[in-house]
Simulated scan of single mutants.
Amino acid sequence: MSDMPAAPTRNLLGWILALLLAILCAASFYSLDLKWVEFTRPDSLRTTFELLGGFAPPELGMPFLRRTANAALETLAMSAVGTLLAVAAGLLLAMPASGRLGGLGIPRAIVRTILNVLRSIPELVWAYIMLIAAGLGPFAGTLALAAHTAGVLGRLFADALENAPLHAEHSLRTNGAPALAAFLYATLPQTLPQMLSYTLYRWENNIRAAAVLGVVGAGGLGQMLKYHLSLFQMQPAATVILAMLALVALVDAASFATRRWLTS
């Protein structure tokens, strides 16, 4: 008679955590005042359809389309520059955060705390801070995107560097290569595709965030959307919303194609 495999041991801690999560979800639904009946009332549905009907047809006049295209380019530029600044800052912070090159003389815990603070503050809060410091316009929005994204990318880059195999780097160091050269020629090439993937993903997110930051006066499509919605100009607002959707779809497609090219 062949030996049967031993039955898997039950993880009591896992069951307890799952039970606590289920209790938390149930308590969340119980504590929230979710008025589903109010949402489906006939007058609520009628008012909603009247609001949506006000968006049709979108404003398609050539002068307005040119303004919308310029705002879309401004939003795209904000996201691109903000992401590039975040990549530079995140890579510099990732070095000591990962403990590579001796931490560059900076304590690892301090840099990790800085990264936590940067990414814990939402883009909108950063935008309000930068608007006070730099005034209205796309510059404040770009800095807000860069500050938050630097915290996110810095943590992701640090984890990628920390988990990278060290055999090639140790081999170069054993043969007399300096620490920086061994890192640049051995460790960095291993993690570069992963870092590029993280960067493209965050650029996609920053496109959406840049459109939202305009609502607080940081320029771009968001600022146009706030202006027209505040005046209840629904048809121009519909054109701006469609421009946002087209811009996000374009960047998503470009990012997907770039990631496939990198991994092929």
Rank of each mutant, 00 (worst) to 15 (best):
M4R: 13
P5Q: 13
A6D: 12
A7W: 03
P8C: 05
P8I: 05
N11G: 03
G14R: 04
W15C: 07
W15L: 02
W15T: 03
I16F: 14
A18W: 12
L21G: 03
A26V: 12
S28I: 10
S31G: 06
V37Y: 11
V37H: 10
P42H: 08
R46I: 02
F49M: 11
G53I: 07
G53D: 14
P58R: 09
L65Y: 00
L65Q: 12
R66K: 01
A69M: 12
N70Y: 01
A72Y: 14
L73C: 12
E74N: 11
L76T: 10
L76K: 14
T83L: 04
L84I: 10
L84G: 09
L85Q: 12
A88F: 13
M95Q: 01
P96N: 06
P96C: 05
S98P: 02
R100T: 02
P107N: 04
A109W: 06
I110M: 08
V111M: 12
N116F: 13
R119K: 10
E123C: 13
L124Y: 11
V125K: 07
A127G: 07
L131I: 15
A133R: 01
A134K: 03
L136D: 07
G137T: 09
F139S: 07
F139W: 10
G141E: 06
L143C: 15
H148K: 10
T149K: 01
G154D: 08
R155C: 09
A158G: 02
A158I: 02
D159L: 09
A164G: 11
H170A: 03
S171W: 02
S171M: 15
S171H: 08
R173I: 00
T174A: 15
N175S: 12
F183Y: 08
F183N: 03
Y185F: 06
A186Q: 04
T187K: 01
L188R: 05
P189K: 00
T191N: 00
L192N: 11
L192D: 04
P193Y: 12
M195F: 08
M195R: 01
Y198H: 07
T199Q: 06
Y201Q: 00
R202H: 06
R202S: 07
N205H: 06
N205S: 13
N206C: 07
G214F: 04
Q223F: 14
M224G: 10
H228C: 01
F232G: 00
F232R: 12
M234K: 09
M234N: 10
A238I: 11
T239I: 06
V240E: 09
L245H: 13
A257W: 14
A257M: 10
T258V: 09
W261T: 05
L262I: 04
S264N: 03
S264F: 03
